[in-house]
Amino acid sequence: MDFDIKRLGFTLLGLLIVLNWGLLMSSIMRKLGARVAKRYGIRWFQPWLDLVKNYALRSQISHGIMFYLGPVFRIGGGVGLFLFMPMIIGSELWLNYSFHGDLVLLMYFQFFGMLGMALGSGEGGHPYSAIGISRGLSQFTTIEVPMTLAIISLAIQYDTLSLIDIVKAQQGGFQNWTMWTNPVATIAGMFSLLGALSHSPFNLVKAPNEIPIGPPTEYHSTFLGVLQTNAAILHVVEAALFMNLFFGGATNWFEFILKTFFIYFWSVFVGVVFPRFRIEQSVAWFLKIPLVFGVLAIILYM
């Protein structure tokens, strides 16, 4: 393929929009959580301040090369997921580079960052990091199982693994969304999304009041800034993936923002209602209810 400067420019602009929307969305959701707890909550621009502050801290301590590469791998996973994700359907330029990869590549990028963090925080040498990362990987493995089954069900239904084709097949009215044409796979997917966005019932891995903060225990200043940047991008892109798979994609930025907001809100809504699971409870839960829906979705479309 030829190098296209215009496409690159639009992709970078899209990354900027997604980053800022992710930061704004996280502050809105934290404010909603605070209102449920009868607090006023953080100011809406707090995530930007935290980001600037963390990048501006003066001293840094490294534990070795892999410690540096951990956050780099993590943001590589987040940005990689963004690059191969079609943002706006119908616009040639907002499709990013999605024609180069398919769903299997996207699923790989979801796991890629976790593995990078595992290596990086392992070199940090803190025992809490090692425990946190083993918990995180075991939980994420069980999240991937129902998610993969839902995606295989969709692949059988639409007879393709290309995300653009799946979205295009859902155009022409909300009754064409996968949500209506394949509700069982949608249920399995939305349950696994709860774990992928790691809000309350499934946030033991990175909760500050469990063994302190899990994998990023040793990460500080710029390292933590990179991880925060990635979290903002990843939350939007994960929501965009599910929007494309189950809710008909977006044809303009307004629709994109509305749909990603409500998909993210689903995990926050569940989060403020249900208390945190222990790790063996969440692993058992993912291997029970979402897995049953995932297997059903496959059987129905065999």
Partner: peptide, 9 residues
């Protein structure tokens, strides 16, 4: 003002 569990952060 937010609380953090680790001195590094």
């Amino acid at each position: 003002i937010q609380s953090r569990p680790t001195p590094r952060q």
